[in-house]
Design a protein around this nucleic acid. Structure first.
Lengths: 158, 158
DNA sequence: CCCATATCGTTGATATTGTCAATCGTTTCT
DNA sequence: AGAAACGATTGACAATATCAACGATATGGG
């Protein structure tokens, strides 16, 4: 059982093939991998009239947690005003509803409608397949490792 | 020697603490981790009058590989027209030069000036420290693993 | 209880970034 | 040589990000 995946390295010096200045920079790799993943996701979700953004909002509103807009903004790292637009759009399509938070009348709880849940389920399937293609080079175990490591960066303790 | 880092999972059901719908979605974690990393990088690099974008361009032009603008665009996943703007900016500040590619008169090779190299070195230090803060939760070995895995996603074979 | 202060959602203005088509000069293919 | 492809550039436009301000509530201290 190999602890270190070690996927085909030895990138040392194919001359001129790939600039090396950033090739081991975690931030850069993060940016590039994200760009690729995002492009694939958007392309796939377009079939449902969604983008990565609207998809993630929709999916979160199917959750038990019943997030408020502020919570959505924080979780997705968006400005609250962007969440307004996203929810406006989803709501206008009948996929989502704004409900007053009984505990705090300033806040809106956003919750998916039946249609929203239905679309979310379909889109989730599509997204899953798109990811499969993007992450296909990794074994299941590698993906688990990657997920765990990314979670540390994505949700820092301090 | 623990093969799997396994950083504090069991996120099963702390009620209301964190929406779970996306918490194990690789694409989402990628996006969020990148957003955090990018924000930290931009904040740090601002001290040098740079952003993540301009920094990465500048850094690549200090490389031996002497990238053309097209190569920069491809590597950074930018539209060629965006590279024009970035190089324009750096050039107007005397950090970078456009040189005709002797092998192809259509192409420009972009190369850092002495001032550019000097700034790049300083900025690199700054960036390194900023990353240290972002990735501080990971051990050195975990970072290596993460880098290797991300490289597979960032530079797919097929 | 009342006031000062903070929060949530919203709007609007503005900047930054992303995307696309068209063009010029050059290269490549046949 | 001529046709097609390519690199850089420009310009137009869409999408996204960032910020300040506001009305409606909440909250905490006096």
């Amino acid at each position: 059982m190999a602890p270190m995946p070690k996927p085909a390295d030895a990138v040392a010096s194919s001359p001129g093939s790939r600039p090396s200045a950033l090739s081991d920079d975690l931030s850069f790799l993060l940016a590039r991998a994200n760009a690729i993943s995002l492009a694939a996701g958007n392309a796939a979700l377009a079939a449902h009239g969604l983008k990565a953004r609207s998809y993630s909002v929709l999916l979160l509103t199917t959750d038990e947690a019943r997030p408020s807009q502020r919570e959505l903004a924080e979780y997705l790292r968006l400005d609250p005003s962007q969440v307004v637009s996203l929810v406006d759009d989803l709501q206008s399509r009948g996929l989502v509803e704004r409900r007053p938070d009984p505990a705090d009348r300033r806040a809106n709880v956003v919750v998916a409608t039946d249609a929203g849940r239905q679309l979310a389920a379909a889109a989730r399937e599509t997204a899953r397949m798109a990811e499969e293609q993007v992450h296909g080079q990794l074994t299941r175990e590698e993906r688990h490792t990657l997920t765990a490591l990314l979670r540390v960066l994505a949700f820092p303790e301090t």
